[in-house]
Nucleic acid binder design. Structure first.
Lengths: 98, 98
DNA sequence: GTGCGTGTTTCGAATTTCGAAACAACCTCA
DNA sequence: TGAGGTTGTTTCGAAATTCGAAACACGCAC
């Protein structure tokens, strides 16, 4: 349940998503997440670090072993999101068949 | 990306989690999610309904076909959370080997 | 030293969430 | 009929979170 609390915070999932391919610096993360403010970014970075999911490295922040496993666990969610987006498009075009 | 926005809201994932086994009424959801306030619950229920993930039924709120697929997609995340919780326990007991 | 690119913190304003109370609709039992 | 219980839902002020922009610190090239 603690996981739901951790990820039920704005930008937490998104930050993990951006880090899945490799380490990124703080300002790069800010640039990639449009609408994310630096104050919240550093709050999330602290939380994720404290929970052993990411860690600071020479190239910025990177996923730990746990974080990498999480990234894999998030893959099905990503695939679902794609089919979900398609369903949304259909609904927008033809709201009748809800 | 819209999915991250939807789930990056407090209690959204938890509500889905509680509905995975079958329909639940609003007051039951409130009882199961300690700390969730009714105002936020109904906000989430509206959002999830608008996005075609849940739907009101005779027995309360239930997952739609899309919602059920999402529930499956969340399974790996749940498994990860278990190993994560174990790692957290270890760290609490022996913070040295971070 | 000056200028630039980072990492990070600070702070007031805007938004979100909490918490509790309330209203409405139903059902049951006298 | 109506008094009491259960559930669904809305409202509203207070507390917490997030935004947005500015600032400080540090290293590096010129």
């Amino acid at each position: 349940m603690a996981a739901m609390d951790l990820f039920g915070r704005r930008w937490a999932l998104r930050i993990l998503w951006e880090l899945r391919a490799g380490p990124l610096g703080a300002r790069t993360l800010l640039a990639r997440c449009e609408g994310l403010s630096s104050s919240v970014l550093y709050q999330r970075l602290r939380e994720l670090t404290a929970n052993g999911i990411i860690a600071p490295s020479a190239d910025g922040y990177e996923l730990t072993r746990l974080g990498a496993a999480l990234s894999h666990a998030l893959q099905p969610l990503n695939e679902w999101a794609i089919t979900w987006a398609q369903a949304q498009e259909l609904n927008d075009r033809n709201p009748a068949e809800a």
